[in-house]
Structure formats: C-alpha cells, structure tokens
C-alpha cells in the first residue's frame, strides 16, 4: 500500500515547492507513475511527447524533468538538448526502458542529472528528484546572492 509521506512534526518534505514534469509516450506507464507520485505528495505534471513537454515548460516553469529516452518523433536526447539550451537550470533525469550505453553517456554528457532504467523503483526515483532539486535550490541561492551583491555595490 502506498503511504503518503508525512510532513507532520515540522519536518519539511525535501520536495516541497518542487515542480516536476514527467515526459513519456507510454500512456500506461505515465499514468501509473503520476498517480503514485501524487500519492507521495509530489507536485507533478505530465507530457506524452517532446512537443507537449516543451509547451508545458514555456507556460509553467518546473524544477526537474523526468523524461523517457525513447519517444517517437523527437527522442529524449534531443529534448534534453533543447531543454538545456532554453531552460539551462532545469535538472533532467533520464529514464529508459531499453539499456543503451551510447544514450546513457550522451545524456550525461549533455548535462542530464542522472540516468535511471525501467522498471524504476519509486523510492529511488524520488531520491533522485530530491537530489536534483537540492542542487537546483543551491544554484538558485547562489544566483540570488550574486544578484543581490551586485545590486548592493
């Protein structure tokens, strides 16, 4: 049984305020994953194609994208490239149902935060999201500090 993570006792959920986008053309997998993540109180939205994902990112900036490497029309590697060009600070976790050495290393080379393989353990995915989000927050904090230092001078 899925149990929602408790935020009682004042302990902050590491994914509080984190917006996630999952991109996968496999409808069954996507639906199940979104439901399970929401049950864990993750703020998640979904896209069934690379084009849809890019549209979401334009209107609703997110912190972390989880995307499938293999998708028809535009594959995940190309989508990763575009995300890194247009929305560089977003962290991207690659997910694949088919192990490919080249795609894994290429994805990492293009700046993917990590590379996971299906079937993915939900806890492992959430930990990766937490780590990626933490990295993003730290970057945000430093950027803000640099900006405010400049304003002060």
């Amino acid at each position: 049984m899925e149990v929602a993570e408790s935020t009682a006792g004042g302990k902050k959920n590491p994914l509080d305020d984190c917006k996630i986008l999952v991109v996968d053309d496999e409808a069954d997998f996507l639906d199940t994953l979104i439901k399970r993540l929401r049950r864990r109180r993750v703020d998640v939205r979904s896209a069934a194609s690379a084009q849809e994902a890019l549209a979401v990112l334009e209107s609703d900036p997110v912190d972390v994208v989880v995307l499938d490497v293999r998708m028809p029309q535009m594959d995940g590697i190309r989508l990763l490239e575009i995300i890194k060009q247009r929305h560089a600070p977003i962290e991207v976790i690659m997910l694949t149902g088919h192990a490919s050495l080249e795609a894994a290393v290429k994805g990492m080379d293009l700046g993917a935060f990590d590379y996971l393989m299906k079937p993915v353990d939900l806890d492992e995915l959430i930990y990766k999201m937490q780590d990626a989000y933490r990295k993003r927050l730290l970057q945000k904090g430093r950027m803000r500090h640099i900006a405010s230092s400049r304003e002060g001078t």
């Binding site: 192990a99 894994a104 290393v105 590379y115």
Partner: peptide, 16 residues
C-alpha cells in the same frame, strides 16, 4: 539484458 543494463548503469554512474 543483465549485461547491458549493468554496463549502462555503471557507465552512466561513473561518468556522473
């Protein structure tokens, strides 16, 4: 499948 998945995960991890 075991061989490929372990080698792929390992390469991605070591690259990281």
């Amino acid at each position: 499948t075991f061989v490929r998945s372990r080698c792929t995960r390992l390469l991605a991890t070591v690259f990281a």
